[in-house]
Design a binder for these strands. Structure first.
Lengths: 332, 332
DNA sequence: GTGAAAGCGCTAACAC
DNA sequence: GTGTTAGCGCTTTCAC
């Protein structure tokens, strides 16, 4: 067993209370006593037992992070941003992969409660009312990342997905493209990613165009969906451009185009979303809407740590800036 | 404050010891008493405080995972594999990003000790003796993933990087390629990834060829390194093929080739390493050595959990199988 | 400025 | 079969 506070006290010839005081830089401990204690600590290689401290203080200095799947393209960077900030303030993170499964999420939240995390960063493809209720019930301080509940009490950090998609679609339209297709998720009011379709719709309408469902393909966010989407859409008509709700879709779409003898951007403009690392390596390099993934994590964690320490928040609902990265998959 | 074991005891009209017994399915508790307790638990929505339990049992049911950087291509899948297994056995994971920085690693290991993790999965690009000493000192049960210390006591799960690189290079040679280049990390005995160069060397020698340093470029594992590598190598001579120590390098290399008017695989065969998701989407689809990343994590965690629970290990040093994925970046 | 002692919520002897 | 109690390693109040 490692040395405990008792050992240090004995070694230094003081009481454990005094050792605790120097550990926490609290009260005015006599300089000499302090020195003695510090020497004893060093000699024994003593490190406080944080579990014991946590039980007493009711603070664990650990934060739970719930993500759908860390092996998904989006989350590693968010988590990295979050962990970096956590680390600065001496917090650690417990990482949980929920697969966006409601039961798994609920179980993780309960376990996080049992482990007395000081707070939680919650990410999910959708936002179920049951989860929100559970969060209230277990009283874990929580910041929502990627999704938000408009006008509700839950602090959040998001980007404006609808507006981003609007801008992306408009960009394609402004290039003179007539038939602009869409491949992505179906509309669903609680799902951040699916709001991209709304932005697409609005951009078309504002440009005086009808949404032609023959130009729209709903699937998941994978490359395969982009590939299939192009094949399905092209069965009925030609297109000038396609806005994809993820970079992976965009890459799949470009591959499908190429397999049909069409090239990007010469024949069809393709726009992605996220600016994942692969988007910058792909050929052609993907023009895309960059989400500040690292920042979403770090800002979220910063907010959470403030909340945990009862500090006031500058803002409750952070909306971070996306930006359009112009590369080679859309004509200049 | 959430309900404690005392509240449950009071509610059920029994002692806390009895509540503890039903919680842990221990001893023979009378069926009726058990029912009463369970009802009280349900009524109060009671969940045990694991921090308190941990202090008593000296087990936290949490495992530390040290990775260089979760936003690096390789680790998310490993971590996912590890977390899935951990979850099955009711463990949670604390994720730490070290950037392979020695001081950061040391500090994380100490903090993990303070938080009394039951064990640790350690991944790093290299394996410093200081770290090993520290692990011994703090006595955290540890499994090494990706790297290993030959003939030492540390359990590990790895692939045979040298042999994998040997096979990959030989594959390129067997296709009739005369000048096979290499882009990757410089040799370094403790770094798993850098052993790929040794495999490359050996394959050439076994094929009766000298290693031509003009065909070798050492850098990092990024796409930019592949891009630069090709440009540097091609300054002096033409090549028939290139073995890249990562898929990212391979993609960068292919891009550089294309920018020089050379196509892959028609003019130059390119082989990657890892089989990251992007490798299967890239054009051309990358022929590569697949590392079982998910399995490395899950096998490592399985070993660790056995160790933590003092169960015997079937093997100490797991060497997992890699395999060659034949796609389109090498001529058929 | 320092020590004694209570208590955080739990488990596990030990007693009955 | 169940209750009492000590104690895990710390922090913090209250004395002195």
């Amino acid at each position: 067993m490692a040395a405990s506070i008792k050992d240090v006290a004995r070694e230094a010839g003081v009481s454990i209370a005094t050792v605790s005081r120097v550990l926490n830089n609290v009260d005015v401990v006599n300089e000499d006593t302090k020195k003695k204690v510090q020497e004893a600590i060093k000699k024994l290689g003593y490190r406080p037992n944080i579990v014991a401290r946590s039980l007493k203080t009711q603070k664990t200095k650990t934060i739970g992070i719930l993500v759908p799947d860390i092996s998904n393209q989006f989350y590693p960077e968010v988590v990295r941003g979050a962990e970096d900030v956590a680390n600065i303030y001496d917090y650690n993170i417990i990482l949980c992969n929920s697969d966006s499964d409601l039961d798994k999420e609920k179980e993780y939240i309960r376990v996080l409660k049992e482990k007395m995390v000081d707070g939680m960063l919650y990410m999910s493809s959708s936002l179920d009312k049951e989860i929100l209720n559970l969060i209230d019930e277990v009283e874990i301080k929580t910041v929502l990342v990627e999704t938000k509940i408009a006008g509700e009490k839950y602090p959040s950090v998001t980007i404006d997905n609808k507006k981003a998609a609007y801008d992306a679609t408009k960009y394609l339209l402004d290039k003179g493209n007539q038939k602009v297709a869409f491949i992505g998720l179906k509309k669903d009011k609680n799902n951040a990613t699916s709001q991209r379709y709304s932005g697409y719709e609005k951009a078309l309408k504002d440009a005086g165009k009808e949404v032609d469902l023959g130009l729209v393909y709903f699937g998941d966010l994978k490359a395969a969906d982009g590939y299939n989407g192009i094949n399905v859409i092209l069965e009925n008509q030609e297109i000038d451009a396609v806005f994809c709700a993820s970079d992976e879709i965009a890459m799949g779409a470009i591959n499908a185009l190429r397999d049909k003898g069409l090239s990007c951007p010469e024949d069809v403009d393709v726009m992605g979303f996220n600016d994942s690392y692969a988007a910058s390596i792909f050929y052609p390099k993907i023009t895309t809407v960059a989400q500040p993934m690292y920042d979403m994590g770090s800002v979220g964690m910063r907010m959470l740590i403030k909340i945990v320490n009862n500090k006031p928040l500058d803002e409750d609902q952070y909306t971070l800036q996306y930006y359009l990265v112009e590369r080679d998959s859309v004509k200049k």
